[in-house]
């Protein structure tokens, strides 16, 4: 049986937007296909052994916790994550995790929290929080699909030349509320502000990332189709909400 080994970064600190929903989706969608997800927590102080993981997940946390995480990422994780990214292991970074995957985060008070540069993006706190349902047209592996979620962030993220936006905003704010882009992708590193959580309503995105992880794990077989009627209905409902509340 093919196994995907997931490194879940800081599940204790970086879990504020129900990130365990994303992990549950990854696990079940493998299980329903006769495959398996092995999840290992990576806490502060833990190192990343080369080749140990097929994919990584980094969620969002409260400001207080994120400072501790930022330090630990630089000290114990950055090197391993960069190496894994080069070897094609997908890294999914959501909300605060997205910001820390970039160059860094400049707070309202001017204080700087450095990121680990997996994505060529930089984030500066804005005067207001960008909150609400969001719909984007995302592009992965040359395919465009509708992706929905909820965003809640003070940071305004701007992309450098080394990353492209994960998608274009259809309804909502996105990276900075100005340039119409949402999230970032570089190779197989994905960053996004979409939670809700991200994956339950967007099984296409989950399956693309799982496909990449399986490839890293040495499995070539394509993922079988699943019955995603509930997912589709939930996505349509969220899309309606995003349209109405704007």
């Amino acid at each position: 049986m093919s196994v995907v080994r997931l490194g879940h970064l800081y599940p204790r600190q970086m879990n504020i937007y129900a990130d365990r929903g994303n992990i549950a989706v990854l696990a079940r969608r493998l299980e329903w296909r006769g495959l398996r997800l092995d999840v290992e927590s990576l806490e502060t102080g833990d190192a990343i052994a080369p080749g140990r993981f097929d994919m990584f997940y980094l969620g969002g946390g409260q400001d207080r916790d994120q400072e501790v995480v930022a330090e630990d990422l630089a000290a114990h994780k950055a090197e391993g994550l960069h190496r894994a990214a080069q070897e094609g292991a997908p890294i999914l970074c959501v909300c605060g995790g997205y910001q820390l995957a970039g160059a860094g985060y400049t707070g309202q008070d001017g204080g700087r929290m450095p990121g680990i540069g997996l994505l060529d993006v930089d984030t500066v706190a804005g005067p207001t929080r960008l909150i609400g349902d969001i719909v984007i047209d995302a592009e992965l592996d040359g395919e465009r699909r509708r992706v929905v979620g909820f965003e809640n962030h003070a940071g305004r993220t701007r992309l450098g030349p080394g990353a492209r936006a994960l998608g274009q905003v259809v309804a909502g704010h996105g990276n900075n509320g100005e340039d119409g882009g949402e999230g970032a992708i570089s190779g197989r590193v994905i960053g996004t502000y979409l939670h809700g959580p991200l994956l339950p309503k967007n099984p296409w995105l989950a399956d693309v990332v799982l496909g990449w992880a399986l490839e890293h794990a040495g499995s070539a077989q394509p993922l079988a189709q699943l019955d995603d009627q509930l997912e589709t209905a939930a996505r349509e409902r969220a899309t309606e909400r995003a349209g109405k509340r704007r």
Partner: peptide, 8 residues
């Protein structure tokens, strides 16, 4: 407006 809490 954010229903993500149900996952917690």
């Amino acid at each position: 407006h954010d229903v993500s809490w149900i996952w917690d």
